[in-house]
């Protein structure tokens, strides 16, 4: 059984007069330990798919099994629990709490877990920050950190709950190419050394190349699913050539 099994997942937005089909019948499996990049033109449904995978959004149809559990029929609170226990999120704009220190930000997801003392939370948070190379910046506020550092705090926060999947919606979108490479290297390392499943949305071919599997979306549909970057890029640009 795959870690993620999507069957004919659809997501449409009803805007009164018109219906927007952000996802049409997406079917795919992702195994434990995979490193997947989601690419596609703007508006192709990458974020929608990511939010669905991340249990932030509920598809309008189809089935989504995460580790054998059906997500589509779950309540809000059940999905919140799944997010807390199995998933780690990294966002394009970092989404750290402002006026809050790095270590407090990393502790945050642990706060929503049962039976953890504040000392345990602190210990885990420090460990995670050390892992992403920010052991020296524990008590810095978000506003006192560079973009790359903020994204590392966000990664440490995502890892604090020891999730099985790390997800990022354009996590390098706001970073320059050098910091972007560093963050990507970190994702790669986590994937290789800890067998963490990584799923990223990206516009950057360099980032996509780094992933072992590339899934190309176009108009809410998967048009290519390949380890080969050239085939993926070909699928991405096909329409532009026509």
């Amino acid at each position: 059984m795959a870690l993620i099994e999507l069957r004919e997942v659809r997501r449409s937005y009803d805007l009164g007069e018109i219906q927007v089909h952000a996802l049409r019948e997406v079917t795919l499996n992702i195994e434990r330990g995979e490193y997947v990049a989601l690419i596609g033109p703007s508006g192709s449904g990458k974020s929608t798919l990511m939010n669905t995978l991340g249990c932030l959004d509920r598809p309008t149809g189809g089935s989504y099994l995460l580790d054998g559990q059906e997500i589509v029929s779950m309540s809000r609170d059940q999905r919140a629990k799944i997010r807390n226990q199995q998933l780690g999120f990294v966002f394009q704009n970092f989404n750290l709490l402002n006026r809050t220190t790095a270590v407090e930000n990393v502790e945050l997801p642990l706060l929503y877990r049962q039976g953890m003392t504040s000392r345990q939370r602190r210990r885990i948070a420090i460990e995670m920050l050390e892992k992403v190379g920010l052991g020296e910046r524990l008590d810095h506020y978000s506003s006192q950190l560079s973009g790359g550092q903020q994204q590392r705090v966000a990664i440490a926060r995502a890892l604090a709950t020891s999730p099985s999947i790390l997800m990022g919606d354009e996590p390098t979108g706001n970073l320059d190419s050098k910091t972007s490479r560093e963050v990507i290297a970190l994702f790669r390392e986590l994937n290789e050394t800890q067998n963490l499943t990584v799923i990223l949305v990206t516009h950057d071919p360099a980032v996509a190349k780094n992933a072992r599997r590339k899934i190309v979306l176009r108009d809410g549909e998967v048009v290519a699913d390949t380890p080969d970057i050239d085939i993926a890029m070909g699928a991405l640009h096909r329409e532009d050539d026509e």
Binding site: G54, A80, N95, L97
Partner: peptide, 16 residues
């Protein structure tokens, strides 16, 4: 609102 979104994304339930 943003803070609420962040907290929810990392697992806060409506009750939290």
């Amino acid at each position: 609102t943003k803070e609420i979104g962040i907290r929810m994304a990392i697992g806060a339930s409506g009750n939290d």
